[in-house]
Design a protein around this nucleic acid. Structure first.
Lengths: 121, 121
DNA sequence: CCATGAACACGCTGTTCATCG
DNA sequence: CGATGAACAGCGTGTTCATGG
């Protein structure tokens, strides 16, 4: 990930990729369902990613050899092709999640400091 | 500030502007000194803003009528012109800081959720 | 060389457009 | 119309350039 010093906050894409990895491990969803799931989960913090970011995140994870497009099958009732994903390199996946976590913690720390600095006494 | 729903994280500029306001209140610094001060304060979280962002933040605060360029004077030993700032509208300043604080807290919340989601069990 | 600005360039991300069932 | 994907456009920000003490 981009470790070029001085960066302010983590790019959305990195967070999404790591998050998608954890979702892929626990649920079987396809593209737009990931988007809706995340929107639902983060509704309270007003975060609503769009479909492009989801797709681009998934594509990058694929290019990096971390996931693969698994079942290009049709859904039960609608006869529509959808793309599911599965993890192909668990080690890479966990490593990436760990790296992003470190970066997220840095951001949390930065936010805490900023909140204190900005607060009027 | 930009409250268009769906935003991921706060823009650097907003955080800087609010932070600069609190610095201006407590210390007498000029442009590059703000930069160095912030770099020092945030060294532990690896945040190193560049001079352009500082200047642009200061200029915006000026255009918004929150601060003014006060003492365009020379420093003690070096005979160099520097630009100091002072708050001209304390109400606007505090309002802005409060708004940014709310947004920073939202980001902190988001980071917490993301850290939990990304963590491998 | 330090300080202030402005101009420029690039990367990230949101919006649109295209294709296919 | 739902789903996937790519192309396009705008904005935020980092890098460079310009001017002046």
């Amino acid at each position: 990930m981009g470790e070029h010093t001085g960066r302010f906050l983590i790019p959305q894409r990195a967070m999404l990729k790591a998050y998608l990895l954890s979702i892929i491990e626990s649920q079987n969803l396809y593209g737009l369902e990931y988007r809706d799931f995340i929107r639902q989960e983060y509704r309270e913090v007003g975060y609503r990613p769009n479909h492009s970011e989801i797709y681009k995140s998934l594509h990058e994870l694929m290019e990096e050899g971390i996931v693969k497009q698994s079942k290009r099958k049709k859904e039960g009732k609608k006869l529509q092709e959808v793309v599911y994903y599965a993890i192909v390199d668990k080690n890479k996946a966990n490593l990436y999640r760990k790296q992003v976590k470190v970066e997220l913690e840095r951001c949390e720390h930065l936010m805490k400091k900023a909140i204190a600095a900005v607060s009027t006494k």
